[in-house]
């Protein structure tokens, strides 16, 4: 039996499966586009290759323009994973900053910031995203920013709660008694201690960000052609759902599988990071 944190991680049900699947998807997304050197977005003018069912020629079938759906999915994985992670990173930065400030300073600063968070959490975020995306020029950067900026509130609340309990701990008091500045204490003594649950939550948040991106792309407001994400593939598949269901099934399945794996790995992380507390 493997001991320690790694052991705790792999004793979580499904963690193996999660790592395996996620590793495969991330691996393909990273290496795939280099290995399969065919341009996935190029049209295939051989009409006979349009809407081919999955088989030996096209593993995932082909789309309405005769493009290999497997290659398209691999390329889309790259974009979906990147947008999801980058958006989460943005959310993590904002959430940690606001949460730390709110929890450490307290008082009216905390009051204002947390009411602001309440208001944001009360908004129907999808509507807001759609409106904002419709106003700005859609593109990768704007999608990342918008998903990040709309998704930091949960992290902020978590960091704030952790900060408030850590603030009362002796080592924080003693660090201040050594004359370290409030900034130093907050960033170097409190934040690292607050990170464990936050990292788990952020990891799970990647899944949510991928899903949000898919929804935006599905509605045509996310990543713009010729680049495509899983959500974009779904959007594209809509008109052919009867003749070519594989065009829906494969990207949709990949989204579901990725989010499921992220959950499993996230649970494992939670057990390994927080199990000994």
């Amino acid at each position: 039996m493997i001991s320690g944190r790694v052991g705790l991680f792999f004793r979580t049900p499904g963690a193996w499966f999660g790592v395996l699947v996620l590793g495969l998807i991330v691996g393909l997304a990273t290496v795939g586009p280099l290995v399969f050197s065919v341009d996935p977005h190029g049209f295939n003018l051989t009409v006979s290759q349009d809407l081919q069912a999955p088989g030996t020629a096209f593993w995932f079938g082909s789309d309405d323009l005769g493009r290999d759906l497997f290659l398209r999915c691999v390329h889309a994985a790259r974009i979906s994973l990147m947008v999801g992670s980058a958006a989460m990173l943005v959310a993590l930065l904002i959430g940690c900053g606001i949460g730390l400030l709110s929890g450490y300073v307290g008082g009216w600063v905390d009051g204002i910031l947390m009411r602001f968070v309440d208001v944001l959490m009360g908004l129907p975020m999808l509507m807001v995203l759609l409106i904002v995306q419709a106003i700005f020029k859609p593109g990768m950067e704007s999608v990342i920013l918008i998903i990040g900026v709309s998704g930091w509130m949960g992290i902020a609340r978590l960091v704030r709660a952790e900060t408030m309990s850590l603030r009362e701990r002796n080592f924080v008091l003693v660090a201040r008694a050594r004359g370290l500045s409030e900034w130093r204490v907050a960033l170097h003594h409190i934040l690292p201690n607050a990170m464990r649950p936050v990292l788990v939550s952020a990891f799970l948040g990647i899944g949510h960000a991928i899903l949000t991106e898919s929804v935006l792309s599905f509605l045509g407001l996310g990543i713009q052609p010729p680049n495509v994400s899983w959500g974009g593939l779904l959007n594209n598949s809509l008109s052919f759902i009867r003749e070519a269901p594989w065009m829906t099934l494969f990207p949709g399945g990949l989204i579901a599988l990725t989010i499921f794996s992220l959950q499993l790995v996230g649970d494992g992380l939670r057990n390994s990071l927080e199990g000994d507390r």
């Binding site: 701990r169 002796n170 080592f171 008091l173 003693v174 660090a175 201040r176 008694a177 050594r178 004359g179 370290l180 170097h188 003594h189 690292p192 201690n193």
Partner: peptide
């Protein structure tokens, strides 16, 4: 300036007085 350099503080429960992640 005074804290630490002029007046030092040692607290009960030494394990709690050290930051566990540093």
């Amino acid at each position: 300036e005074i804290r630490g350099k002029e007046i030092g503080l040692i607290f009960q429960n030494p394990l709690a007085a050290l930051n566990p992640v540093l």
